[in-house]
Structures are given as structure tokens and as C-alpha cells.
Design a protein around this nucleic acid. Structure first.
Lengths: 236, 236
DNA sequence: TGGCGTATGTGCCCTAGCGTACAGACTTTA
DNA sequence: TAAAGTCTGTACGCTAGGGCACATACGCCA
């Protein structure tokens, strides 16, 4: 019954579409619940579904040397998972794993492609989202290269805060270490430092943002740069 | 007279197009010479022209914290500069600077967009190139995070070797430091090491690849991964 | 309530790469 | 041919973060 949500959908990318285009697309979507740490795509394999997160959020991770990885993208209700389909390639370039449990709209690949073909506004919107994604990817690359773990952690927490729609969310140190490409101990230290500054509080994987403004001060400029890019290209 | 090269053009991306589509596009192109260190795009500004390198090659650099930067892409005769126009955004996301002097085909933005509209094969080819670019961007991000300077330098030399169509090309340590996001001294040390292994020779900015196979051994797996991605998506 | 699994905190040594300064070698120009 | 500019090599102390080992704390479940 509640498989098709009321208009407007709670995904900002879809909300930007004209009513008729959105309705058309939503008619083919089903609402699904994504659970923490669920792997939606495996790098190099065929894309099974397209997702529009609502209150869930998804990490894109590029695998390195077998076991380790590095986050190269974070998708929440501002985006879409499966964007490369618009490039005519149905192979996932990255691993996609659920970082924040919650709901999302899901559509099959053939139906998505059909709607993409039909809807010019959808094409335009997705192209611009792709541009933003590329910009963020480059920003992340530079950030990983130059900025300290603590600043990068602060940035990640802010980005996640934006997508979680809640001050508290679940993520362990070891998970963060994987995402940021550092040792678990490095995360522990950085998180302790942020905690001592009363910016966050931490308790067995449940992290709470206490002082968002302070966190922005602790983060590198990359966070603001990313927001600006988003606003400039996709902002209303 | 030689402003329009003989068919086929010496850019592999264009060569992949059907004859009629390529001819149409080439009719609007002019051949230009790009000189070393020339800045073609400034990040955040309007894209002035689209380039298809022939024997020149171009670095995409993302600026960080004002003065420093990091290379996030390398474009030679396998690619195109200005790809984001296909996403409907005419703002350059990165700085583009000429890394290897040489010739390229140049087309104005309006004419490029006109040809893009007209030619479906061009659209498809550019989409796939965009996919490859994204994959490489992510690979570079991970590489910068995890691999040692010497391996990264070896990889960069291989990538450049592929695009330079010559065993010797010009690039100074300080330039490489900027590209790889490290100190100049770090490059000097890594280059010395590669030289001691008889893989390259170096003389005041003129670098010569002596042992390509050995260099591949010294490089991280990222080089091979990138080649594989290229072959898989854009290979014939 | 005791035991086990999971998550976080601490300590110690090690290394790659940074910041800085300076010296030597080559090249261009006057 | 001398001077100035450019490029490469060397040296030294410093720090962020890696690798590893282990200790503690929390929570679930028998």
C-alpha cells in the first residue's frame, strides 16, 4: 500500500522534476528498506537496481589492493545510486554499501532506462548530478592527499549529518577507518579529539553531533567547497 | 592548408566515430599547437574551447588551499578536453594545463554542442569516455592515498609515455611535485631511485624511458587497472 | 552472574614524507 | 666569459600516521 509514496517524493533529485515526469517515474518505483552495511553493488559487476535514497545513505567505495578501500562518494536524498547507467554502461565502477539504514526508492534497470529515454528533465537533472559527483570525487582525492585525519573525519561527519536527517547515527571506528583509508586507531584518536572539543559524543558506534558549527570549523574547507558546488549546479 | 588533417584524424576517440560523423566534426575543427605549461582552462571559469589532443597531452589539476594542486586526470590522443559540456555544464571543474607540447584539434563550444546534438555516435563515445574518466579519477584518489611516491611516479611516467608517443619528454621535478602533490625533493629521490635501476634517465627536465617493462614492475597496480578499464569500455 | 563477542583506548617503535636550507651543475644571456 | 637564472642533489630535524600488541569497557545471552 505504501509502496508508492505520496507526492512529492522525499528525494530531492526527484523533487526537482516536473510533476508529470516524477509521477511517471514513481509509478515504477518501490519503496525498500536498506539495512546497515548491506552491499548494493559490487565493483565491476552488473548494476541490479537503481536507488533514490530517502532517509538512508550509501557510500561508494573503490577497492584497492584486494582488502582495503576508500570512499569516493556519499549518496543521500540529494542523489541517486546507479548514475553510470546514464552513460550507457551497466557495470558498477564502485562498491556501494549502505552507510545509514533507512528507506529508498528502487527501480529496475530496464524501467529506469525507459523512463530516462522518455523524460528530458530527468536526463538534464542526472547530467548535472553527474557533474557534481565528478567534482566531489576530485575534491575527495585532494582532501585524502593533503588534509589531516581529524579534519577529514569532521568533514565526513558533516556530510553524513546532512544526509542522515538526525543528530545521531550509527558508525563504528573500524568502519570509518575503512571509509577514510586510515587505521582504526587513527579514527579513535581523531574522534577523541573531537569529543574533547565537545563537538561530538560517541558511544559504541552511536555518534551524535553536538556542535555543528564547531564541527564545520574543525573540518577542512573541502566540506564548504562541496556544498558550494552542489548549490551552484543543482541548487534551485 | 594543413588546418584540417587527413582522414582519419590522429585522435583515437574521433577515429572510433563513423566516417561521416567524424568528417562533419573535423570540418569545424582547427589544428592548433599547444605549448608546454600553457593553461587551457581555469577551474570554475567558462570553458572556451574543446580540444582533441593528437600528440600533445593535458593534465587536469584540482586546486587545493590556494597554491598547491593535484592531478586528477591526464588527457592524450585517447580523449577529449571539455567533456563536461556533454553534461550541460560549461564551467570547467578543473584546471587544464598542457603537460606535453604538441598539436591538438580545437573546436568552439557552440559548434561542438551543435555536432554533439547531431551525432549519436559522438554522444555514445563521449559517454563511455566519461565513465572511464570517472573510474580513473577514483583510481587516482586511492593511489594518492595508499601508494608510495616512487610507485606513483612510475605510474605517471607510464601514463605519459603512452600519450607522448616518444621515449623522451620534458617535465621538471618541480612540475612533477605539483602534479603528484608531493615535495620537489620527494620527486628527486624517487627519480634517482628509478634512474639507479636503469629504468629511466634524467637530464634537466628531459626524461627518457629506458626500460618500459621494468617501469611497469616499479609502478603500482593502478596503471594496469586503468588500462584494463580503458580497454574494457573503450577498446575496439 | 558469568562468559563471550564487539567496540574503544593506550603504548611503543618505525617510516614516509614534510619543511627548510643550501650546494652544485647546467644554460642562457649580457 | 662572466653573471644570473634554472634545475637537481644533499642534509637534518620533525611529524603524521602505520604496524602491532594488549588492555579495558560495554552489552548480550546463556
Amino acid at each position: 500500500m505504501s509502496s508508492i509514496p505520496a507526492v512529492p517524493a522525499a528525494n530531492r533529485l526527484l523533487n526537482a522534476l516536473p510533476d508529470s515526469d516524477r509521477q511517471h517515474l514513481l509509478a515504477h518505483c518501490e519503496r525498500v528498506n536498506l539495512s546497515f552495511a548491506e552491499v548494493l553493488y559490487l565493483a565491476g559487476t552488473k548494476i541490479p537496481h537503481v536507488y533514490f535514497p530517502i532517509d538512508s545513505f550509501i557510500s561508494l567505495v573503490t577497492p584497492v589492493d584486494g582488502d582495503i578501500g576508500l570512499e569516493v562518494g556519499l549518496i543521500g536524498d540529494e542523489g541517486i545510486l546507479g548514475i553510470t547507467l546514464t552513460l550507457g554502461v551497466d557495470i558498477a565502477p564502485f562498491q556501494a554499501l549502505v552507510q545509514g539504514a533507512g528507506s529508498a526508492l528502487r527501480i529496475s534497470v530496464p524501467l529506469f532506462l525507459q523512463e530516462l529515454e522518455r523524460s528530458r528533465p530527468l536526463q538534464l537533472e542526472l547530467k548535472r548530478y553527474l557533474y557534481v559527483s565528478m567534482s566531489q570525487l576530485a575534491q575527495t582525492a585532494a582532501c585524502n592527499r593533503f588534509h589531516l585525519v581529524e579534519a577529514r573525519l569532521a568533514r565526513w561527519l558533516l556530510m553524513t549529518h546532512d544526509r542522515a536527517h538526525a543528530d545521531t547515527f550509527h558508525v563504528t571506528h573500524i568502519f570509518l577507518a575503512y571509509i577514510l583509508g586510515v587505521r582504526r586507531v587513527g579514527i579513535t584518536k581523531a574522534a577523541l579529539s573531537l569529543q574533547e572539543q565537545k563537538l561530538i559524543s560517541y558511544r559504541r558506534g552511536d555518534i551524535t553531533v553536538l556542535d555543528r558549527g564547531g564541527l564545520e570549523g574543525a573540518a577542512c574547507e573541502c566540506y564548504r567547497t562541496e556544498r558550494d558546488t552542489y548549490e551552484r549546479i543543482l541548487g534551485t
